[in-house]
Simulated scan of single mutants.
Amino acid sequence: MTAPEPDAVVSRVNLANALTVMRLALVPVFVVLMFTGGGHATVWRVAAFVAYAVAAVTDQIDGYVARSRRIVTDFGIILDPIADKALTGAALVSLSLLGDLPWLVTIVVAVRETGVTFLRLWVIRHGVMAASRGGKLKTLLLNCAIGLYVLPLEGTAASARAVILAAGVLVAAVTGLDYVGRALALRRRGTSVTEGLLEDSDAG
């Protein structure tokens, strides 16, 4: 959820945060539905798809609600990416455990997500790395692909979801490298500013 600087007087109890909490709460519901009936019963997979789709939709609207209503909070900024990664991670691991998705895909995405989170923490003293357009595209592609993999599809539909997934993984890898470059640039900029301030202090 990309958002402007939060207002300290805004209550944590608001619609945007409620949507984010709902997304996080849907994660265990989705996992249970995925493995009910042996993991491949059509009715339960469709139910799991509905849970995933509802959670994915909240990811697209909670940020907009927070910005448009000026109800951005630190709580929401912290919880939103946690909910996103929990949902995506749970879905990928579940699909891999059920044999519907190669573990390589799950590992690549997990490494990318963990790495970006680490980079954001690494540069937090120097600036905030907001989600890029590529990052948002990655999320959209992966959400679409994962949702389609949850459904028991065959034939052309199954081939189409594989193409969407491949595009999502490719964008994930490329944007991951972009985040590395942005993080290094922020660190260099922050170090240069700090050194300049020290030199001014010494000169004074």
Rank of each mutant, 00 (worst) to 15 (best):
T106R: 07
L151R: 12
V21C: 07
V32E: 12
R182L: 03
P4I: 00
E5V: 06
I107P: 06
H40R: 06
R161K: 14
L177W: 15
V180L: 15
G181L: 07
V9D: 11
L98D: 10
S11D: 11
A25I: 02
R120N: 03
R182T: 01
V31H: 13
I146S: 01
F118A: 03
A55K: 05
M1Y: 13
D202Q: 13
A47Y: 12
T88C: 06
S132M: 14
A110F: 04
L186E: 06
A53I: 03
R189M: 07
F75P: 04
T36K: 07
L142W: 07
A145G: 00
L141Y: 01
L119W: 13
L197C: 07
R189C: 02
P152E: 14
V46H: 14
A145I: 00
R182V: 00
T42W: 14
T20H: 12
L184W: 04
G147E: 01
A86M: 10
A25V: 08
A8C: 01
P152F: 14
P152A: 11
P4M: 01
L92G: 00
L148G: 02
S11V: 02
T58E: 07
R182D: 06
L87P: 14
A66M: 01
V65I: 05
D200H: 13
A66D: 04
S94I: 05
L97W: 15
A18I: 04
R23A: 08
G176S: 07
A47L: 15
V111R: 01
Y179W: 09
R23K: 11
L97M: 13
R125D: 15
L121H: 11
L142H: 00
R125F: 11
A130R: 15
A8L: 09
H126Q: 15
R189D: 13
L170D: 05
E5Q: 10
V93G: 03
L104C: 03
D100H: 14
R69L: 13
A203R: 11
A3D: 05
L148N: 02
C144R: 03
L24F: 15
E154N: 13
G115S: 09
T114V: 03
L153N: 11
V116H: 11
H126T: 07
T117E: 05
D62L: 10
L165F: 00
T2Q: 10
T194S: 14
L97G: 04
W103P: 01
L19Y: 02
A51T: 02
A66Q: 03
S96T: 14
A162R: 12
F118Q: 05
V174R: 02
A55C: 04
I61R: 11
M129P: 11
G168H: 11
Y179G: 00
L26P: 08
T139V: 05
D7K: 06
E5M: 04
V13G: 05
V46E: 11
D84F: 10
A55L: 05
L98K: 08
F30Y: 15
A56G: 00
T114H: 01
A83D: 12
A51V: 02
E5L: 06
E199P: 10
M34A: 03
R69N: 10
A173R: 02
L197P: 10
L198H: 14
V105A: 05
V72Y: 07
A172Y: 05
D59K: 06
I164W: 00
G196P: 14
A130E: 15
P28W: 14
V72D: 11
A90E: 10
W44C: 06
E154K: 13
A3N: 05
I78Y: 09
